[in-house]
Design a protein around this nucleic acid. Structure first.
Lengths: 268, 268
DNA sequence: GGGCTTTGTCCATATTGTGGACAAGAACGC
DNA sequence: GCGTTCTTGTCCACAATATGGACAAAGCCC
């Protein structure tokens, strides 16, 4: 084995470092729990989503409870993120630069479009909704809230982000998330199909949103290094987004996505 | 060994569960990093504060970096809480009941006293500042910000909380934090002395605040189960808090602390 | 009360994580 | 420039730690 120069250079990029299996496992458990938000997630689902064995998940979860990182809801038996997590988060007082950069664009687009607007970031293999703006139109799709977290691929935002990634990376993520797709009634093949379509079209779309009768359109937002870090999404009841308006909305989103990318570049 | 009924009953209270050393260690590292806020903490200080060996801390920290939980500032080489922590925290949307319950009291006390007011919670062996209100008086002590985290015992809020705990628990915490006191130029004996004084007096006080020339007064706030969970603190330049005014301010703080306790009880 | 699903526990085992010892940078002095 | 002292980073033999198969208990639904 060539141990000569395997260290320094290759290390930072390829994520090899070992000697902490348990810590990594605990974190993947936490990320699954985060997707369950206030209500939490039953143990069996964590087992399914992480691919770990039940005793292992059980042990991890209960240690995290003792440490205050996880809570168990007595009524339901579900496990959820505990209140020490926000406490740790207070150590980072500044709002993310993306949120700052996106502010004006979200305001403009929301006023112009009138339907609900979402800003979603990529975090690992998940999408995470970090901002939501309600529009002026009387029927709004409010199912997704700030903090909502889903496997990349199941929402139109996730599809858009996957579409903007190198095809190989996208495929790797979809494979990694495969086990979690069942819970959202989709599968790897469907997701990959939507990604290809989005790549061709230039923006992501789900004609059948996660909520019945809604449609979503998403554009990706890239950081200066060319990697998609977020997506901007409009969701509306299906009848509001016919072919004509779809094109119109997409153009606004594309324009504002470019404007956000510009704002990030000049803030860095 | 009596394994008969060692499980179920004793488990929840006495924190025994094992099989996750590495996870616990990673968490204690995280809590130290949280105390470093944006600037972070040098590796050596994490080693000192946690009592772990350097290779171990190094390994843990770097795995956490790969996972996005920790960041390393390239200029300084210091380690800090990473941006995935706030992302996980988004899973808990509700503000803590304490913050809600304390709102009106903080507003009243701040208006009445005119000096800077802090709400500090206990989290494990640390105090964590969760709210700050600036008063009307032109000289304000602003050194402590929301998110500031310190070992229980080094601030007047910490002393107040320790004073309200059973003496034995307080001593245990002080011992656990001993290694971290150097960094704040104090030691276990001094802290225990202040705790005793606070217990007699009915409120916590530091004549020489963490910042030169300031004085702080803190009252503890107990949850319905009788355990002190937080403290309310006034900080001012020393000359503002002579013996007469000290008594006056303490009375307001004591009154509002009871009022917060009442509010918690009725919200639960 | 019998089947079914989900959660919790035990313990022998080897895999994982440990930390002593060593190496490589960085910051200072002169 | 070249020691000196600091902090950070890496290696690897060893054993304590975390693992997961198998079993138990607790709910839930008919």
């Amino acid at each position: 084995m060539d141990k000569a120069h395997s260290s320094r250079s290759a290390r930072s990029a390829l994520e090899p470092r070992q000697g902490a299996q348990a810590i990594r496992r605990a974190l993947s458990v936490l990320r699954i729990l985060a997707a369950g938000r206030e209500d939490g997630v039953p143990l069996a689902e964590v087992v399914q989503a992480t691919g770990l064995t039940r005793p292992t998940v059980h042990r991890i979860v209960h240690v995290l409870i003792e440490e205050g990182i996880v809570e168990r809801h007595d009524r339901t038996g579900r496990y959820a993120i505990g209140n020490q997590v926000p406490e740790l988060a207070l150590a980072r007082p500044r709002p993310s630069p993306l949120l700052v950069a996106a502010g004006p664009s979200l305001r403009r687009a929301s006023a112009e479009i009138g339907d609900t607007l979402f800003l979603t970031v990529r975090t690992g293999n998940d999408t995470l909704c970090v901002d939501r703006r309600i529009g002026a139109y009387p029927i709004q799709v409010l199912s997704i809230e700030v903090g909502a977290r889903r496997p990349l691929g199941v929402s139109s935002a996730g599809v858009a982000i996957l579409a903007a990634l190198p095809a190989q990376d996208a495929r790797k993520i979809v494979t990694a998330n495969e086990k979690r797709f069942d819970a959202y009634r989709t599968d790897a093949a469907t997701v990959l199909g939507q990604v290809t379509a989005a790549r061709r079209r230039g923006f992501g779309m789900r004609e059948i949103g996660l909520v019945q009768g809604t449609t979503s359109i998403s554009t990706w937002i890239k950081t200066p290094d060319g990697r998609p870090a977020a997506a901007m999404t409009v969701s509306a009841v299906r009848t509001r987004l016919g072919p004509r308006r779809e094109q119109e909305v997409a153009e606004i989103l594309l324009r504002e996505a470019r404007s956000i990318e510009q704002a990030i570049r000049s803030s860095a």
